[in-house]
């Protein structure tokens, strides 16, 4: 349980410390922090085995951490360094760590949903009991890919979990303005799969829901759709100039911070005392801080290697 907390804090620290570095001009491009959504990423990852796979999105660093991805490798990648998880080629859009089944970040909304179904097709064909999970946002459910992937996965009974991180906003457009139904899971029925809503700021609730969907998939009963209701606290990216949502709304959600909420659960259930929690926090902060320093000292890719990895 303390491990769940630790990973949530690692995700949070990576976002916060890289935002600071971005402000200092040390990181090219934009960043897409997932602050506020950590319970979904970490709860989901904890419910899966190392050999299971996930695909993720432009906001995927904490999803990667949840699945056991290496901290240094992703931080170095955010800085575009040669020792990053994508050798400086992909940036935070392409987080990956195949050893622990993270294969599929993307800069294209909806780009990886069918890919997760493809992982599942391989597992089904090979006859092993692994499952694939696809992380995506509420905005992604309006891509054609969502509809095609869910239908195909359903008729082929693929062992895949579609996990929507509904953070209420697709960039600057509220879910009530872009979604044709009240809940994303309202669409599950049409694709012949169970649809479950969970509190996306409750790491244990996410863990339970994903565990159930995973056993269903492992039993050969096919895909599930889970909608984790959560919220993105920072701007959609470092390029966000704001003006589309109220401070009040953000404050209301800050009060439901998934990390603070989980800390009180741990304290109340006497799973950890505040001293233990503080030391987990301090250690996570230190680990990420060291990764950032390591990244800053790491070499940029050598221009003469530019074509490396283009073809196998």
């Amino acid at each position: 349980m303390l491990e769940l907390l630790r990973k949530m804090i690692i995700g949070r620290e990576i976002d916060e410390q890289t935002l600071v570095q971005k402000k200092k001009g040390n990181i090219p491009g934009a960043l897409h922090p997932a602050i506020g959504q950590e319970a979904v990423s970490i709860g989901a990852g904890a419910a899966l085995r190392d050999s299971d796979t996930i695909t993720t999105t432009h906001r995927g660093i904490t999803d990667y951490i949840g699945k056991g991805g290496d901290v240094r490798a992703v931080v170095c990648e955010v800085f575009g360094r040669a020792n990053g998880c994508s050798k400086g080629r992909g940036g935070h859009y392409f987080v990956n760590d195949p050893k622990v089944g993270v294969l599929g970040g993307t800069g294209v909304v909806g780009g990886t949903m069918a890919m997760a179904a493809g992982h599942a097709l391989a597992f089904q064909t090979l006859g092993d009991d692994r499952v694939a999970l696809s992380h995506f946002g509420d905005g992604a459910v309006n891509t054609g890919m969502f509809h095609e992937a869910l239908n195909l996965a359903s008729i082929w009974k693929l062992p895949v979990i579609f996990l929507c991180q509904n953070n209420e906003w697709a960039l600057t457009v509220h879910v009530s303005k872009h979604l044709s139904c009240e809940h994303v899971v309202d669409r599950a029925k049409g694709y012949g799969m169970p649809g479950v809503i969970v509190d996306g700021n409750d790491v244990m609730a996410v863990y339970e829901a994903v565990s159930q969907a995973a056993s269903r998939a492992r039993n050969g009963d096919g895909p599930s759709l889970i909608e984790a209701k959560t919220y993105r606290i920072p701007g959609f990216a470092t390029s966000d100039v704001g003006g589309y949502r109220s401070e009040d709304e953000v404050e209301r959600w800050k009060a439901k911070d998934p990390i603070t909420m989980f800390e009180s659960v741990l304290l109340k259930k006497k799973i950890a005392d505040s001293k233990e929690i503080e030391s987990v926090k301090a250690a996570a902060k230190k680990e990420v801080g060291e990764a950032v320093l390591f990244a800053l000292e790491s070499p940029h890719p050598d221009p003469s290697t530019v074509f490396d990895y283009l073809y196998a």
């Binding site: 090219p28 491009g29 990648e77 575009g80 360094r81 040669a82 994508s86 400086g88 080629r89 992909g90 940036g91 859009y93 392409f94 940029h300 890719p301 221009p303 530019v306 074509f307 283009l310």
Partner: peptide, 16 residues
């Protein structure tokens, strides 16, 4: 443009 995917790293992007 070089016939290469466009990399994230600025020193590589500059080459492409």
């Amino acid at each position: 443009g070089l016939d290469c995917q466009i990399p994230f790293s600025l020193p590589l992007e500059k080459v492409v």
